[in-house]
Write a protein that binds this DNA or RNA. Structure first.
Length: 823
DNA sequence: GCAAGGTC
């Protein structure tokens, strides 16, 4: 009998795959562990008996980037990036998702895609199709798309019975966005980074980045800074009459609130004072309701985390993710504030009823009958963030507990009664002017019992009778002054981003942390975002060249264009071309006008020439270059007006006053940060423009030698001397013995001019400095380890170069290239 | 060294 056909089902993340498999198999499945789990079970599919396999990807399978030649900042004009090819590569090569999918798809007759039901999910569908080797319109092996709005049994079964085709238009819309974001972001970033870092020494930012999301985000913060800076305070005056009733002193509120004219205010004060009697004109009582919250989505969680818990969005998300993977809360990235109708509130409440903190309240709530949450919006992604498992404070870290505590309080709040109170307003007339006072009496605390910070404050008023007349104690003329708005808080910024469609629930924290990391804004007390001089100058610059560049509309424009693709109303290639054409024009104009922006930088920052201290000698003019220590650390030659970047995150010193034989630049030694810090010497010129050809092969050689990283015990394995006592370890090995078998290495004659040594015994290769005219062995021996000395003849510096003399130096070049490739 | 979007 033929084996049953196989159906491969793929979800967006492992947890969803597990839920789907559990629901469809009734929990009777066999789970294979691997890089990602595969759940197997038997069942029926379209009337046939089949074997199911459910697995997942981990987000996007591929990410998009430029091919290698375009990665070189110095060799590529950013303008060329707009028309450059792009390529997709595995987003996380170490996870081997592609291999996993293609292996699992082998022998399967059906592919069912269970990716999230949004554009990104649709795009991942096609990444999965590509990885599995399925084709969309193939008769023999069919591809289906499951559309589901929640991972409940009902929705999963419904989706299984209503399988559709994946939507290529929506997927292409994502491809379109990826290409536009990549090209625009990278082109502007490279241009302005190179331009400004080549001129100023104290920008203190590794990279002066530009992005259609991060730049408008910065724009919001700077906009607020401008409002604060240009704010002109205005004086105002208000009347504050006081009365005494039943022993209470009461201040009455003026109907006119405040006046900006002192004389007029004084006139009213006189009128009121002359009357001296407050007459009660109206007493009204109204039942008011403060509604329980709707479900909690990511953006609202982040706002509360920042404003009430003092946790930044990035940290809050990390904690939320950890709570999620440990099973304490539901998936923390969601836009929805509405629960699906099938949601199991009883289950969640049953779990929380066990909790020592809220248990009593929840038990009473269940006994009295809990409420369904208020209706919110259903974005069709995931249910609101909900506690899943009871936890106590000692089970979680401090911040995680506080976040969990809030998620629980919010959830219990959503199913609690509304808060009800009576609002009493007493209106008065004094000298023809109207005043009032307001009292609150809470009748039902409702959800404010678990969310006490939202409680309505009890404010009792003495009993008044309509028509009653009360003598006035005094009438103060209050003088105040309008105050500027405060800096944006993270919470304000999140609201603005959400309102303007900048970023998504998952990316909003990333954009905010990006502008902090790039030193465009700083988070100050109260989680306020204060722009730095760099952030302010950048936005000012965009405003004077092309304000569009920092306005939120730039994102809406892209979104609107790709929506045409998603709806199938426009061809994606033409949209990419059209949008890139416009950005290319903007880019060209920006480059042309950059002097205007530069004028702002000039007024704010110090030129490279005035920055830093004299450090090491330039090989071209033989004068001292300046060492700029602010990030990115670099050397600047005042005479040649050249910048030489250095390896980052470490310390740099002069190296024995040696100079590089290739270019006469003084050599430096770099020590990496950390307790097990490695050091290596380098030539600043070679580091910025490696002198060798065939660096890729060189890199390969480094790998064959042993370690491929500059980690512990690593260095230059190919050039390490195997001789245990040899202190000339950096190069001697290349000429004395093979690192694999200790056999003698010979010059490989076939490969010239790619100089390398070949071991006849084990067939391995050791590469030598390239660019040499001639390399030959000599009769001399290394005084340190007795190995044969090699002579390298460099035409370009017109003299012979003996390995033993400069052997350590030769290794520096190799190291420079290696570092360059590696970082 | 670069964007924004998934997810871990």
């Amino acid at each position: 009998m033929a084996p049953p056909p196989k159906v491969l089902m793929v979800a967006e993340k492992p947890s969803i795959a597990l839920s789907i498999a559990t629901e469809l198999s009734g929990g009777h499945m066999y789970t294979r562990k691997g890089s990602t789990e595969v759940h197997e079970f038997d069942g029926s599919f379209r009337g046939f008996h089949v074997q199911y396999k459910v697995t997942s990807v981990i987000g996007h399978v591929f990410s998009v980037d430029f091919p290698a030649p375009y990665q070189d900042w110095t060799a590529t004009d950013p303008l060329d990036l707009f028309q450059a090819p792009i390529r997709k590569a595995e987003a996380n090569p170490k996870a081997h998702i592609c291999r996993h999918l293609s292996q699992e798809a082998r022998g399967c007759g059906y592919l069912v895609l269970w990716l999230d039901c949004d554009r990104e999910g649709e795009n991942i569908c096609f990444e999965v199709i590509e990885s599995t080797g399925f084709h969309v319109n193939e008769e023999r092996r069919r591809v289906y798309r499951a559309r589901f709005s929640s991972v409940t049994q009902k929705d999963i079964l419904l989706a299984m019975h209503n399988l559709v085709e994946p939507n290529r238009h929506e997927a292409l819309a994502v491809d379109t966005r990826q290409e536009i974001d990549l090209k625009v972001g990278v082109a502007f970033t490279r241009f302005q980074t190179s331009y400004f870092q080549g001129r100023y020494g104290n920008l203190d930012s590794r990279v002066i980045s530009y992005g259609p999301c991060q730049t408008p985000t910065l724009g919001f913060c700077v906009q607020r800074y401008f409002q604060i800076n240009t704010f002109k305070p205005e004086k105002f005056w208000a009347l504050h009459p006081f009365i005494i009733k039943s022993g209470y002193e009461l201040q009455l509120e003026w109907e006119r609130k405040k006046l900006f004219d002192k004389d007029v205010a004084i006139m009213f004060q006189k009128l009121v004072m002359e009357d001296r009697i407050a007459k009660v004109t109206e007493i009204s009582e109204k039942q008011d309701i403060k509604s329980r919250p709707s479900g909690l989505n990511t953006v609202n969680l982040l706002k509360v985390a920042s404003s009430a818990l003092g946790l930044g969005p990035q940290v809050a998300m990390q904690n939320a993710e950890r709570l999620y993977t440990r099973g304490f809360i539901s998936y923390p990235r969601t836009e929805s504030t509405s629960y699906p109708s099938s949601f199991d509130f009883k289950g969640v409440l049953g779990e929380l009823a066990k909790n020592p903190t809220w248990g009593n309240y929840v038990q009473r709530l269940v006994a009295d009958g809990y409420h369904k949450p208020r209706l919110g919006t259903d974005a069709g992604d995931h249910p609101p963030i909900t506690p899943m498992r009871s936890a106590t404070e000692d089970m979680l870290e401090h911040d995680a507990w506080r976040l969990y505590e809030y998620v629980c309080q919010h959830f219990i709040g959503t199913v609690s009664p509304d808060c009800k109170y009576v609002r009493t307003m007493v209106e008065f007339s004094i000298g023809g002017e109207s005043f009032h006072c307001v009292g609150h009496h809470v009748t039902v605390k409702g959800f404010t019992t678990v969310m006490p910070w939202l409680a309505v404050h009890e404010k009792n008023l003495p009993q008044f009778i309509k028509g009653e007349k009360i003598e006035i104690l005094k009438v103060d003329l209050f003088e105040g002054s309008t105050t500027p708005p405060d800096f944006l808080t993270e919470s304000d910024l999140i609201s603005l981003m959400e309102k303007n469609g900048i970023g998504t629930d998952a990316s909003i924290p990333v954009h905010i942390s990006n502008i902090c990391e790039r030193n465009f804004v700083q988070v100050q007390a109260g989680r306020k975002l204060v722009p730095t001089a760099l952030g302010i100058t950048l936005i000012r610059g965009y405003q004077c060249i092309d304000p569009d560049l920092c306005l939120p509309d730039i994102r809406s424009f892209i979104e609107q264009q790709i929506t045409l693709v998603a709806k199938g109303q426009a061809d994606h290639i033409r949209v990419v071309q059209h949008v890139l054409q416009q950005f290319m024009q903007k880019y060209c104009y920006f480059v042309k006008q950059i002097e205007n922006m530069n004028a702002l930088f000039e007024a704010q920052f110090s030129p490279l020439a005035d920055s830093g201290r004299n450090f090491s000698k330039c090989g071209k003019c033989l004068r001292y270059m300046k060492y700029i220590s602010t990030q990115p650390s670099r050397l600047y030659c005042n005479t040649c007006e050249e910048v030489y970047y250095l390896p980052q995150k470490g310390t740099i010193k002069l190296y024995k006053e040696l100079t590089c034989p290739l270019d006469n630049f003084e050599l430096l030694i770099f020590s990496m940060a950390g307790p097990e810090a490695k050091s290596f010497p380098l030539c600043p010129y070679c580091y910025n423009s490696p002198p060798f050809e065939g660096i890729d092969t060189l890199f390969g050689a480094v790998k064959t030698g042993g370690s491929s990283k500059l980690g512990k015990g690593a260095g230059m394995p190919c050039f390490l001397c195997p001789h245990p006592t040899c202190r000339h370890s950096m190069i001697a090995q290349g000429v004395c013995a093979c690192p694999e078998c200790s056999g003698t290495l010979v010059l490989d004659p076939v490969s010239a001019p790619k100089w390398r040594l070949y071991c006849n015994t084990c067939n391995c290769l050791v590469f030598l400095p390239q660019g040499a005219h001639r390399i030959s062995t000599t009769r001399d021996r290394c005084p340190e380890c007795d190995s044969t000395i090699i002579e390298v003849d460099f035409n370009r510096i017109q003299h012979h170069w003996r390995m033993e003399l400069h052997c350590t130096v030769a290794a520096f070049f190799v190291m420079s290239c290696f570092i360059r490739l590696w970082r």
